[in-house]
């Protein structure tokens, strides 16, 4: 462990590369966490199917980028006869949110509306159920293969010298920019528009909002669908940077949960900061304590943060909201 730290300190360029990589992937985590914070804050539901929405979006990214006839094979179902090779998965950044918005609406109409105003335990169970359902559905429909979305973008070599190389992946830069834009748009939407005001009003006091003539159910449905859409976009970016599998959603739910716990609800800037921080911390931990503890590190960090917060709150006699 010590020699790993020494190795990083001896190679500042590599350390910088690592941190930048982590920060940029952290931007995607932040995106997923926005959505979770939104649903949590407005509807008081901890959405455990977050990761599955992400993976669903990832598969959409994969299918836009892949030659359809190749992907499905000659035993193709008769209703898919598209003959085009794939297009850039960047298009999926538009397509996936639209599809996921619809899926979010559908789940709201089927399940989620029953959970509003119920206790947290019920909503956790129900959304966990949705996550299992989606996993199996994706496994059945999209197969159990590990897939990546091809994008044809390369890397920039910024520093290339005896001190080491600084290599930046173009996709990760896009992810960072996209996350910041979505964050900005979301903040603007929530603060400045009528729709956003309605969401905030319902979040503050659903009964009062109803009396004022706001259709709270409509707001809930929109919020939940918006979250699914954000996850969809994040999933496309994940499939372009990493690799996805029908069952690999959970880790993104855990990360989002962790970020929201650190940043608190209704704090978009905090979510971004926590997301980027988590991404960078993960990468450094990868080298210092080893990749095998990747998941353990995230959950361990979550534990530490929760402990620390409860200690701090205990001192100030506040209530954790």
């Amino acid at each position: 462990m010590l020699e790993n730290i020494q190795l990083l300190l001896d190679n500042p360029v590599a350390l910088l590369n690592l941190l930048l990589d982590g920060i940029m992937i952290g931007a995607i985590f932040a995106l997923i966490a926005y959505g979770m914070a939104l649903v949590w804050g407005v509807m008081n539901i901890i959405n455990l199917s977050q990761g599955e929405f992400v993976i669903f979006g990832g598969f959409i990214g994969y299918y836009t980028s892949t030659d359809w006839t190749l992907a499905i094979g000659p035993s193709a179902s008769p209703w898919v006869s598209l003959e085009w090779g794939g297009i850039s998965p960047l298009w999926a950044l538009v397509i996936a949110p639209l599809i996921l918005y619809g899926i979010g609406r559908a789940f709201y109409a089927l399940v989620i509306f029953r959970l509003v105003d119920r206790d947290l335990f019920t909503s956790i169970l129900a959304t966990f159920g949705i996550s299992i359902f989606l996993q199996q559905l994706m496994n059945g429909v999209f197969t159990a293969e590990d897939v990546i979305a091809q994008h044809g973008m390369g890397s920039w070599v910024l520093v290339d010298g005896t001190t080491g190389e600084l290599v930046i992946e173009q996709v990760r830069v896009i992810a960072l920019v996209f996350a910041v834009i979505v964050g900005a748009v979301l903040t603007f939407y929530l603060r400045q528009t009528r729709g956003g005001q309605a969401i905030r009003a319902v979040a503050q006091d659903a009964r009062a909002a109803r009396i004022m003539g706001i259709n709270a159910d409509q707001v809930y449905a929109r919020t939940y669908a918006l979250n699914a859409a954000i996850c969809g976009a994040a999933g496309v970016l994940i499939s372009m940077t990493l690799v996805i599998h029908a069952f690999s959603g959970l880790i993104y739910t855990v990360r989002a949960f962790m970020i929201v716990v650190i940043a608190g609800l209704g704090n978009v800037a905090g979510v971004i900061a926590a997301g980027l921080g988590l991404g960078a911390a993960e990468k450094v931990a990868d080298i210092v304590i080893g990749t095998s503890y990747q998941t353990a590190f995230i959950t361990g960090l979550l534990l530490v943060v929760l402990l620390w917060r409860s200690l701090r709150l205990g001192r100030q006699r506040k209530v954790l909201r």
């Binding site: 990493l242 959970l250 990468k283």
Partner: peptide, 30 residues
Amino acid sequence: GKLPRDLSDMKGILQKVKLVKPDLLVISGH
């Protein structure tokens, strides 16, 4: 290096490999 079952990103370990410059890199993670 050991890779976790729910591996999502290998950048960390690859960055380390880049630093130590081995003659052979062997990877197995399905």
